[in-house]
Simulated scan of single mutants.
Amino acid sequence: MADNGPGHIGERLRDIRKRRRLTQHGLSEASGVSISWIRKLEQGEQQDTRLETARKLAAALGVSTTRLIAGRREDEADEATIERWEPVRHALTAPVSDRGADEAPTVEGTSAALTAALPLFSGDRFTDLRPVLPALLRDADALARLNPRGRHLRGRLLQLTGSLMVQTRQFDAAEKALDRAVEDAADRLDGAAIATTRCWLLLRRGQLAQARAVAEREADDVEPRLSRATPAELSAWGWLLLRASAAAVRDNESDIATDALRLAHSAAVAMGREFAPNGDFLRAFGPVTVALKRAENAMVAEEPDRVLSLAARIPAGGLRPTSNNRNRHLLDVARAHVMKRRHADAFGVLQGVWADAPEWLPNQHYARDILGDIIAKRRTMTREMQSMADALGVPL
């Protein structure tokens, strides 16, 4: 079978391993992946594996991660999550019904409602957001049929909803929301912001080459002259470079990842501080954001000492904890502590994230894996560990 054939990852793994004249034992030693797991993959007992594990195997084989995981799809949300968010997904696709004049939404009223909902998005307050989002989507749809201001408002809401769907692993719904958001983009910077969220969706789905291609194409399109660039232009360009770097480092293209991160750093230096254009938390960008992503790249490359060194230099108050920046970084810090066998420190970091984002953490498979590693190294568990394991769905 060809290396990028339609079969499961184990068939491609076995084919490439044999072409490299490596035994399963040799591949295990080179990659750090257990020989039992390699056997389960090659024999088809396991049809898929985590992206982190695939990257280790691909690096040991000297191929891109994309080549090894062709056709892989990231796990979607569980049934309980799908059921909870059904009204939101329905509002994304259902036709808008005509309303009487007394019930017709206004741009001012809907804009105010969206502004009031922004802390629910940025704070990952899913329980509070679910009841209000369907009506907000319907109102925005109705307004978009009437005037350009309504379309711009709907585009922003659709991007926020798309990001939310990515966060809760409802990937098909996220793709639908982002496809619609593009149609309502007010300008190229709006389009770049939507592309940044789309790249995140592709990354979570393991579509690394596609994510990098989109990020690089869009970054070329919005690249500003640093000497006179606006904060909005720097944010749009910088975020696309960060997405390109994230895709490249996961695809074992370290030089490309480093170059993209260097350019993003240039944009952050020109920005001078953390700044969110038009108050949009999804576009917040600056030196701290780049530092967080540099640490993330180091964790993907399994350099725990570098992760902890970089983390120690990031200002504790430099960025408000949200799901798309500091909390994700803190999971890398926890993982680095696990790799250094500092399990108490790792659990302490997880506890902090859980306190800040109790509805966000259970949606992170990464957090589940970190806690699973901590538990595996302990003879007994504390009550706090048991509570978190229950919340994250970690088997005891």
Rank of each mutant, 00 (worst) to 15 (best):
G5R: 04
H8A: 09
G10D: 07
G10S: 03
G10R: 01
R12G: 09
K18F: 11
R19T: 10
R21L: 05
L22E: 02
T23I: 00
H25F: 12
G26F: 01
L27C: 04
E29I: 01
A30F: 13
V33Y: 06
K40C: 07
E42V: 00
D48G: 00
L61E: 12
L61A: 03
T65Y: 06
L68P: 14
I69L: 15
G71N: 07
R73E: 15
E74N: 07
I82Y: 00
E83T: 01
R84K: 08
R84N: 00
P87C: 04
P87M: 04
A91I: 07
L92H: 08
L92E: 07
D102S: 12
E103N: 05
T115C: 15
A117V: 06
P119T: 02
F121H: 01
R125P: 12
R125I: 01
F126K: 02
V132Y: 12
V132F: 13
L133G: 06
A135W: 06
L137G: 10
A142Q: 12
A144M: 08
N147A: 14
L160D: 09
S163F: 14
R169H: 07
F171T: 00
F171D: 02
D172P: 05
A174S: 13
D179Q: 08
R180G: 12
E183G: 09
E183P: 06
D187C: 07
G191I: 02
I194Q: 09
I194C: 05
I194M: 11
I194E: 05
A195D: 15
T196Q: 12
L202H: 11
L208Q: 03
Q210R: 13
V214M: 13
D220R: 06
E223G: 09
P224M: 01
L226M: 12
W237H: 15
L240E: 05
L242K: 04
A244W: 11
S245I: 02
A248M: 01
A248L: 00
V249Q: 12
V249K: 10
V249M: 08
N252W: 01
S254H: 14
I256D: 15
A257L: 05
L261W: 03
L263R: 15
L263V: 02
A264G: 02
A267S: 05
A270H: 08
M271Q: 13
M271R: 06
M271K: 01
A276Y: 06
F285S: 08
P287L: 05
V288H: 08
V288C: 10
V290M: 01
E296W: 12
A298K: 08
D305R: 14
D305G: 13
S309K: 11
S309W: 08
A311F: 02
R313K: 04
R313Q: 11
I314W: 06
G317S: 12
P321A: 08
S323R: 10
L330D: 15
L331D: 04
A334V: 05
H337W: 10
H337L: 10
H337P: 07
K340L: 14
D345C: 03
V349H: 07
L350D: 06
G352S: 09
A355E: 11
A355W: 08
E359F: 01
L361Y: 05
Q364W: 00
A367Q: 07
I370Y: 15
D373T: 09
D373C: 11
A376V: 03
K377Q: 11
R378A: 15
R378Y: 02
T382H: 10
R383W: 02
S387K: 10
D390S: 15
A391N: 04
L396P: 07
L396I: 10
